[in-house]
């Protein structure tokens, strides 16, 4: 945890974008992401990425794969690039204000969160840890897929309650845009499935 970041102007590299991160975490891929990330930017990105998803609070934004980069534009001025899961996802507004609050709390007075659409988010952007947490929370994680569009129904979805692969689709749309509603034939429990996008 970073708790000492109250005076960003003391950092030698606040205006720099050339210093490559020494922190190991690679910058999110995509044309909109910063190539060389300063150490402070990496710290801020970790902070922004630690914000929980407002609709799926077991996941962080980092695990969901929606954070596209953090850039220091000037001392005390930071721009965060965020991509929506679905174009109309209403959670993006809550995510934006949560990110602003976290970065304000860590001494950044000016935070702007910019919505980027390209490259389009995919469920393949959810991290392995994110998938594990989804299953633990009772939501079947998305299957990996290469082509666009719905995954063929022949690929089974595992029941997050009993582990059976004998499950059936009830509806392609569920409690949020990103989920489908399924039922386990073995244990009869209905469950949400994070559908592939």
């Amino acid at each position: 945890m970073v708790t000492h970041m109250t005076d960003v102007t003391d950092m030698p590299d606040v205006n720099g974008v050339t210093e490559t991160t020494a922190c190991g975490t690679p910058v999110a891929t995509g044309e909109s992401a910063t190539v060389g990330e300063t150490r402070l930017e990496a710290e801020l990105r970790r902070l922004a990425g630690s914000v929980p998803d407002p609709e799926l609070p077991v996941l962080t934004l980092e695990e969901l794969g929606v954070l596209r980069g953090v850039q220091i534009l000037a001392p005390g001025t930071v721009e965060v690039k965020l991509t929506p899961t679905y174009t109309g996802c209403p959670a993006i507004e809550a995510m934006t204000s949560d990110i602003e609050r976290v970065l304000h709390d860590h001494g950044i007075p000016e935070v702007s969160v910019v919505k980027v659409l390209s490259p389009a988010w995919s469920t393949d952007d959810i991290s392995a840890e994110g998938r594990r947490k989804l299953a633990e929370f009772g939501i079947a994680p998305p299957r990996a897929h290469a082509a666009e569009g719905p995954v063929p129904l022949t690929l089974s979805v595992r029941c997050p309650n009993c582990g059976s692969t004998d499950t059936e689709l009830l509806s392609r749309f569920s409690s949020t845009a990103c989920k489908a509603l399924r039922r386990c034939v073995s244990c009869r429990e209905p469950f949400d499935h994070f559908k592939e996008l």
Binding site: T87, G88, L170, S171, F173, S174, A177
Partner: peptide, 20 residues
């Protein structure tokens, strides 16, 4: 009920596209 939810979700996708 499932169709209520499905049609509302489709509407939400379209609204997001319209806003952009």
């Amino acid at each position: 009920l499932e169709e209520d939810v499905a049609l509302a979700n489709i509407a939400l996708d379209l609204l997001g596209q319209a806003r952009v």
